[in-house]
Amino acid sequence: MNYPVAIKNVSKSYRKVKALSNISFEVNKGELFGIIGPDGAGKSTLFRILVTLLKPDEGEAFVEGYNVVNQFKEIRKIVGYMPGRFSLYQDLSVEENMNFFASIFKTTVKENYHLVKDIYSQIEPFKTRLAGKLSGGMKQKLALSCALIHSPTVLFLDEPTTGVDAVSRKEFWEMLQRLKQQGITILVSTPYMDEAGLCDRVALIQNGEIMEIDSPEGIIGNYTKNLYKVKTDKMFEIINDLRDYQYTDTAYRFGDSIHFTSKQENPDSDELLSYLQGKGHDNVQINEIKPDVEDCFMALM
């Protein structure tokens, strides 16, 4: 029981809808652990169970060795939690929000300033501004500062980057990396697959079930198919042409190209080339590539 977070066979239903079914995993100390999946996959339910807001229907969960059901008081003292919507008081200023969240944990901003300095100093110039008037990225930083102010040992961040622009997202992940170096265990959920690579380990979750748990490299290593990146002059038409191709297993748009897998045991890219040329595509490029987490996620769905 040395894991900061341990979940054993947890299931949870809302009326008839199964939100989580038989989830088990452990998170190591000081790990940045990602829970990756679309909306409605069960990410928030899982977080709420871990921060003692919900009771699991079946199974057990522990945070720092405390049971989430009967030792919830201990857990509430040591975790930091940032719910999906940044739960800040919109009508309080940046500073007032900080002071308030510090006060409910019986501490002061001054006392723990060193913990949040890195993040809070970025929004401190706006400390008299009302939280409701901050931009998405700034709200995100304030919410994280508020969740950190009482020096939690485990941090639960439920979709901290949803709806936030790419720049703010990148900055946010850089902050998490630095926090990790302070020894805080961090669980973070996100619907953005590209963020998986920034975690130490990730759980891919869909429809309340964990499809795979591993390091991003491990997940990519487990991808067994040959994946091709296909590019031609006519990117609008190509997807339909590939779907008509007899050996196509999957063909998905990925940025400026198509990721293609074949039904053939040993895919013949020359044949694909001549098929596409026959359909009138010029400048056809077909390269075998390494998958990313998103490819793996789709392959598991």
Binding site: P38, E294, M298, M301
Partner: peptide
């Protein structure tokens, strides 16, 4: 497309 799965 916020929040939906990659295939959708």
């Amino acid at each position: 497309t916020g929040g939906v799965d990659p295939i959708t």
